[in-house]
Design a protein around this nucleic acid. Structure first.
Length: 694
DNA sequence: ACCCTATTGATTTTT
DNA sequence: TCAATAGGGT
């Protein structure tokens, strides 16, 4: 068994590094702790928290103070809470939750900031509408600007009064849209020549109106305008309804921290220890907030410790602060940890080459060899063969799984075997109009993130799986409320009825459920189905209509046939595909090969990893990976923009490759001859993958 | 042949 | 939301 022996000297080194952190805590010297993938960062963070409680817990309790531990994601928050165990003195939460908890007590100040924000936004809108000379914007607003002042005024009023008409027809095709406004806009020359520009103009006008009204309402202290609300579920601000979203919460908090010394002091005196997990992913405003607080603590001579834990090379999100942290928060004590507790030597060597900076990891284990890394290039069609080869070679089973990383959710759906489910959902009006939603609402390992219809389908599949799985408990299947009322023979009868349900597609299965519903007199069955379907109408037609309403709203008569067909397709997909999707949502526990996106693997580790890579990352990021390898040997010649792209790609490859504990293979699906030097520099050598040799 | 407009289809992830 | 491409008019 490898990866088990740690030499005493290395163990001491590791302890010495942890002691450096403790020492900084003792002296209230803020730190930035940097360690590569698999170094045990979270472990260090948790040990530090325990250290604070052990040594300063009494003092904290006496002064009614707490330790603030903030994470970027809820997943990280839960992991830390679980590993740390119960502690009254430590508040673990996501950054946004913590900031909102602090900030919401300052509602009056927030309202002032909100009015400022509305005014700022208003001047931007007015500027674009009337003055902005930027070529693109000038063109978009030209037809409006060409109107006389009088016409501008009347046009604004007209559109504000016809707001509903405007939005109701918003998704019409251009011809129909023009038809709606043809007569009422005759006196405004060319205003509706280009629908896109027209929409832009009218949207701007309506927004200005809304913001002005909002300010008026705030000043009059009208109902609904006396409080700022933070909505963590929704991704953008609705400023005119007093609702702010994630980024604006950070913006407002930063303003408060900037302006009000008392606010800073309250934070400092309530939380003398602030620890930040995965700092590289947080928005730079968070670091600015911390810097303001730290500076003020020093000014007034109050003790404060700020600890950043993270790794700049694992910053893969655009708005993460990454390497810029040192510019924003200067004067931090740097602590590095070079040990790797995760991977075999062969993997560590490669990931060191990828990051190529001052963190050069060494395995903490003496017995760290025995892994293997190889880089292949091959054809796009060879992916399945490649997987097959390593399934055999590595003896893949449920106990020794293979994890494949792909770039897009679309590929992930295809490989995982629910391609048609993905495409049929993709083709619905709802997901066409909210195209980015499909990836969160359908392709998620987190049940709470599923969209309403995917969740509904999930429940139906779960019902079927629980029913057919001999290992599952009756109580899983039958609701407690119903189960408790049943006699033994009633239960047997209910199960007999349930077992008669059948169908090859989701549609057929649901049809069978409702057919039985109509036929049977068994009230328990009816209760169960009512509960499962949660629909007003207990019929297949009711089910169908419900889906139609949710997925294809706002239909015009002539669109009905196509929509009907699309929904039919969604229901015609083989039940097995839905089953595979269900398995995926559950985390793929029952599959020996699991698929992930590169980004989605952050924090995980797997024994066997295959990464499929190619030149492009979608249509907007042409040559992302080929440029990385091509530029690897001459990064100094890159301009700022190119360098940013390079680092971003580097980090993504670093995160992906560093998931591997033992075996790592890359299959590159394009020609690599133009940048093979870069590949060699990282992976040593490369080979062609020939299917004939399998 | 050219220009402007409409339609189409898409990269990932978190709060 | 936005870039690429298809389409339509001159």
């Amino acid at each position: 068994m490898s990866l088990s022996k740690i030499s005493p000297t290395v163990k001491e080194e590791e302890i010495a590094i942890q002691n450096q952190i403790y020492n900084s805590i003792d002296n209230y010297q803020s730190i930035i702790f940097s360690a590569g993938a698999g170094a045990g960062k979270t472990h260090s963070l948790i040990e530090s928290l325990k250290y604070i409680i052990k040594n300063y817990g009494d003092k904290l309790e006496y002064y009614n103070q707490k330790v603030m531990c903030i994470t970027y994601t809820n997943v990280a928050k839960n992991e830390i809470k679980e590993r740390l165990g119960q502690s009254e003195l430590i508040e673990v939460s996501t950054i946004h939750d913590r900031l909102w908890a602090l900030v919401k007590n300052y509602n009056n100040k927030l309202i002032d900031i909100h009015i400022e924000k509305l005014n700022d936004e208003l001047s931007i809108l007015e500027f674009n509408l009337n003055e902005n000379q930027d070529e693109k914007i000038k063109k978009e607003f030209a037809v409006f600007r060409n109107l006389s002042d009088e016409l501008k005024h009347s046009f604004k009023n007209l559109m504000i009064s016809q707001k509903d008409l405007f939005y109701n027809n918003y998704n019409n095709n251009a011809k129909d849209f023009k038809e709606v406004f043809r007569d009422s806009l005759e006196q405004y020359p060319n205003i509706l020549k280009n629908v896109k520009n027209f929409k832009k103009i009218v949207n701007t006008i309506i927004k200005i109106e809304k913001y002005l009204k909002c300010i008026e309402n705030i000043n009059k202290k009208n109902d609904g305008y006396r409080m700022i609300k933070y909505d963590s579920k929704y991704n953008s601000d609705i400023l005119h309804r007093m609702i702010i979203s994630h980024d604006t919460l950070l913006e407002y908090t930063l303003s408060l921290v900037e302006k009000y010394d008392l606010f800073k002091q309250i934070i400092i005196d309530s939380y003398p220890y602030i620890l930040i997990d995965e700092y590289q992913d947080t928005n730079n405003r968070v670091i600015q907030i911390m810097k303001y607080i730290a500076d003020y603590a020093e000014k007034i001579g109050h003790k404060l410790f700020v600890g950043y834990f993270g790794d700049v090379a694992q910053n893969i999100y655009n708005d993460g602060v990454g390497i810029k942290i040192s510019q924003i928060h200067s004067g931090l004590i740097k602590i590095y940890k070079k040990h790797n507790r995760r991977s075999h030597k062969e993997v560590i060597d490669v990931i060191n080459n990828i990051r190529n900076d001052d963190i050069v990891q060494e395995s903490i284990y003496e017995d760290c060899s025995g892994g293997s890394v190889k880089f292949y290039f091959g054809k796009n069609d060879d992916k399945q063969k490649f997987i097959e080869k390593y399934k055999k070679k590595w003896r893949i089973s449920l106990d020794n799984k293979l994890h494949c990383l792909v770039l897009t959710n679309r590929l992930l759906a295809e490989f995982s075997g629910f391609k048609d489910v993905y495409y049929c959902f993709y083709n619905t009006e709802y997901y066409q109009n909210n195209y980015e939603q499909i990836n969160t609402e359908l392709i998620s390992n987190d049940l709470s993130k599923l969209g309403s219809i995917p969740k509904f389908f999930y429940n139906i599949i779960k019902f079927k799986v629980d029913l057919e799985n001999p290992r599952s408990f009756i109580t899983n299947l039958i609701d407690e409320e119903i189960y408790s009322k049943l006699t033994f023979s009633e239960l047997r009868e209910l199960i007999r009825i349930l077992k008669t349900l059948e169908g090859n597609s989701l549609g057929e299965y649901v049809k069978s459920i409702f057919q039985k519903y109509k036929e049977t007199k068994n009230k328990y069955y009816k209760q169960m189905i009512s509960k499962l379907m949660n629909l007003e109408v207990n019929s297949y037609q009711g089910f169908f209509n419900y889906l139609m309403d949710e997925l294809f709203y706002n239909l015009k008569d002539e669109e009905y046939v196509v929509a009907n067909e699309k929904l039919q397709n969604l229901l015609n997909v083989d039940l097995y595909q839905y089953f595979l999707w269900y398995e995926f949502v559950n985390g793929g526990y029952d599959a020996d090969v699991n698929f992930h996106t590169y980004h989605g693997t952050k924090g995980s580790e797997f024994d066997n990893v295959i990464i499929f890579m190619e030149n492009d990352f979608g249509i907007r990021n042409k040559n992302k990976f080929s440029n990385f390898f091509g530029n690897y040997n001459n990064i100094d010649s890159l301009d700022t923009k190119m360098r940013q792209n390079f680092d971003n790609t580097k980090n993504l490859i670093y995160v992906s490759c560093s998931r591997a504990i033992k075996n790592l293979r890359i299959l590159y699906l394009d020609d690599i001859s133009d940048f093979s030097k870069g590949v060699e520099a990282i992976f040593g050598e490369f080979k062609e993958f020939k299917t004939s040799s399998v």
